[in-house]
Lab assay of single mutants.
Amino acid sequence: MEVRTIKVFTTVDNINLHTQVVDMSMTYGQQFGPTYLDGADVTKIKPHNSHEGKTFYVLPNDDTLRVEAFEYYHTTDPSFLGRYMSALNHTKKWKYPQVNGLTSIKWADNNCYLATALLTLQQIELKFNPPALQDAYYRARAGEAANFCALILAYCNKTVGELGDVRETMSYLFQHANLDSCKRVLNVVCKTCGQQQTTLKGVEAVMYMGTLSYEQFKKGVQIPCTCGKQATKYLVQQESPFVMMSAPPAQYELKHGTFTCASEYTGNYQCGHYKHITSKETLYCIDGALLTKSSEYKGPITDVFYKENSYTTTIK
């Protein structure tokens, strides 16, 4: 009895394709271990004539594949690729409408935090270190965002349907971005203890939790000093293409032309909904596939993004 075979390709990165001759009487799992086709788990399936010449994702289970996976995804987590594939199996079914010149995501599976993050990423200057993220990001900007969303979920250790947080998501993504040249110098002034300067680099240099107003941050924000008295913390120097200011959701007025974009969060910790506000020729609110415009805006804002380049204080 002759062994019926077909020729397929296996890959971990969709760049390096490895030619395989597979036995049609055995499952993919018996031949390769966990195997995925377009995100779908085909591990328990036997090869079919229609699979001839198709590319299958496999887990990096030998040295060659491990090197290829690390170079593309910059992670050695053995569960990463499987999590990416199972997320992709959902995100490829989502709709990605162009809204006001940006790629958004039609609401499904509690994905409003991903839509808000995706919209924000198209408006701030950011370059990702893992080629996987950078490639998928370019495709997302062009309207094909399924891979990018699935990668975000995998890097953030999230599953489809789980509630997510924009600030946490951005923080994970910033860790995989090139923020080497970003720098922030802060000064804390206390009447009792004097003053202390701190220099922050990388992710810490672009994120701040405690106030939404970048102007206020430049002037000074009140913080408790270690001595128990009130101290003032203010920005001395900022070198970065953008800054992200966050605070627990509270009524906040966004003035046209003073910011790049913002995240609105309605609801409580267990259950809520994100919308995205962007400042173009007027203010726009993007909620999944829905767009509304207004000249002014007041609502429960939790993150505001500002364009920056270089700032030095005039406070002496």
Rank of each mutant, 00 (worst) to 15 (best):
V236Y: 09
Y113P: 01
T120I: 12
D62I: 08
T226M: 11
L212T: 03
K233Y: 09
Y96M: 07
S181W: 15
E215G: 00
T75L: 09
C261L: 00
P224L: 13
T232H: 04
L37D: 14
H256F: 09
D62R: 09
H276T: 02
K106C: 11
T11R: 05
C190Y: 05
Y73G: 06
P34G: 11
Y138I: 15
K54A: 13
L290K: 15
V42Y: 14
K191I: 10
C261V: 00
D77V: 07
T278Y: 12
C156N: 10
K46P: 10
T116E: 04
P241M: 01
V304M: 05
G202N: 03
G101L: 05
Y297G: 00
I315M: 15
Y84K: 05
E68Q: 13
P34Q: 07
S295T: 13
L235H: 01
Q98I: 14
D77C: 09
V21P: 12
K191N: 14
H18M: 07
A87K: 02
Y284Q: 12
P130Y: 06
T103E: 00
N178H: 09
K218V: 04
L81G: 06
Q195T: 15
C156F: 05
E239C: 11
H176D: 01
L186P: 03
P60M: 09
V185F: 03
T76K: 13
S310N: 10
I223A: 13
Q31R: 13
R66E: 07
D165A: 05
E264C: 04
Q251C: 10
T192V: 11
N178F: 05
V206E: 04
Y234E: 02
T76S: 11
V166W: 03
T266I: 10
T35G: 06
K44R: 14
V12L: 08
L119Y: 02
M209V: 13
V189C: 15
Y214V: 05
N100D: 09
G228Q: 00
V221E: 01
L59T: 12
G194E: 06
V185K: 08
E253G: 00
D77P: 05
M24P: 14
K229I: 08
A132I: 11
F56N: 03
G299M: 04
V166E: 05
M244S: 01
M26V: 12
H48Q: 09
I15S: 11
Y234R: 09
Y28P: 04
L88G: 05
Q216C: 05
L37Q: 11
L179N: 02
C193F: 02
F128I: 06
S79F: 09
S240M: 03
V99M: 13
T260V: 15
T198S: 10
W94V: 05
N309V: 13
Q237R: 12
V160Q: 04
G39V: 06
Q195G: 08
P249N: 01
P249W: 00
D180I: 07
